[in-house]
Amino acid sequence: MNPKYSPLFDTFVFQKGVSLKNRLIMAPMTNFSSNQDGTVSDAEVRYYARRSKGVSMVVTACTYVTPNGKGFRGEFAGDRDEMIPSLKKLASAIKAEGAKAVLQIFHGGRECPPELVPNGEIVSASEVPSERKGSATPRELQEDEIQSIIRAFGETTRRAIEAGYDGVEIHGANGYLIQQFFSPHSNRREDQWGGTLEKRMAFPLAIVEEVQNVVAKNAKQPFIIGYRFSPEEPETPGITMAETLKLIHALAETKLDYLHVSQMDFKAEPRRGVEDQRSRLEIIQEQVGKRIPVIGVGSIFNPDDAIQALKSNVPLIALGRELIIDPDWVEKVENGRETEIETKIDKGAQERLVVPDPLWQAIIHSPGWFPEVE
């Protein structure tokens, strides 16, 4: 191995004692490839197993915690006990290759396609549609429904424990339900769940508390809990960097095991809310990194990018598109073959790359999403 890349292969131990063999993690990525009944498909299992050998931890694509939280076609389910064998199949495949398995748990809220949820009724914090073209107006959730969804995050966590996962990641990013409660764009409530910044934080914090209580009651061995968030929103009103800093301070106080930043480029700077020319990642790390491990992500295509991201002092780096383009990314760096890393998707290599067809079709029909071989 080239000595300059050795920091990527230092071990890391979470506060609960869960140990990672290196600093490189597979980021959660939707793959649209589960079976129609919500079970994990064989193609998905092969896809994850192919990418689980080099990284120290795999965070799965999101699994929905209630039937009205399904956000994508081909998303696998975690909303009922009948899904435990399916969830276990995926966890076992990841762990058999030497990586820790973390289940990302999720509710899509107003971003759910109406045709995927019962009665076509989408729900959110308030009756405010997304600014995406053609978005439907959601129904505002009632108090009993909010409490039910909070419990559902806990129940899916229990299923993850029973299925053999090493942890869960609460998906509070990318405009989905948890973020919808935190955002001033989607949350116009005037009760205990909205209004002030503190009240908009109530739903995310209630889910964290519920998940932690379920883990304390059910886990027989160390089980980590992470939280993924998007630092800012483009909408006005929308989440600003200043508001996110308040949120992550509150999350750090809960003694979560890690925070995971969701952004397309680890070098991205704040849009608004703080007067700081450093990257969001550096600011976040400076604010809470001494209290809670931060995972950085975004356009880390080669090991030099990864080393640069580590220089922001975050301890862990997540690779997303990079592991789809080259499943052997980590092993190549570890074995001194970093010059052989593929950094552009080869449109003729689906079988070699072990990518399920629905995900492959999304990649090749979405210009600009992945860099392509000419």
Rank of each mutant, 00 (worst) to 15 (best):
F182N: 10
F182G: 10
F182D: 08
S183D: 12
S183N: 07
P184Q: 14
P184H: 12
P184V: 08
P184G: 07
H185K: 15
H185G: 12
H185M: 14
S186V: 12
S186M: 13
S186P: 10
S186Q: 07
N187V: 14
N187I: 07
N187L: 04
N187D: 12
R188K: 13
R188A: 13
R188G: 10
R188M: 11
R188V: 14
R189D: 04
R189G: 15
R189N: 13
R189I: 15
R189S: 15
E190A: 13
E190R: 08
E190G: 15
D191F: 13
D191Y: 05
D191Q: 02
D191C: 11
D191E: 12
Q192H: 15
Q192M: 14
Q192D: 13
Q192S: 12
Q192Y: 04
Q192K: 15
W193R: 05
W193Q: 02
W193H: 11
W193Y: 06
G194D: 11
G194S: 06
G194N: 05
G194R: 09
G195T: 11
G195D: 08
G195P: 12
G195C: 05
G195S: 08
T196K: 09
T196W: 05
T196V: 10
L197H: 01
L197K: 15
L197Y: 09
L197D: 14
L197W: 07
E198D: 15
E198L: 01
E198Y: 13
E198P: 02
K199V: 12
R200A: 15
R200N: 11
R200Q: 11
R200V: 15
R200K: 10
M201E: 13
M201T: 09
M201P: 14
A202Y: 08
A202Q: 06
A202I: 09
A202W: 10
A202D: 11
A202G: 12
A202L: 02
F203D: 01
F203M: 00
F203H: 09
P204G: 05
P204N: 10
P204M: 07
L205H: 06
L205T: 09
L205R: 09
L205M: 07
L205V: 12
A206N: 07
A206G: 07
I207R: 04
I207N: 01
I207P: 05
I207D: 01
I207T: 00
V208A: 03
V208K: 00
V208M: 01
V208C: 05
E209G: 06
E209S: 08
E209M: 01
E209Y: 01
E209L: 02
E210P: 00
E210I: 06
E210L: 12
E210M: 07
E210D: 00
E210R: 03
E210G: 04
V211Q: 02
V211Y: 05
V211I: 13
V211C: 03
Q212Y: 04
Q212V: 02
Q212P: 02
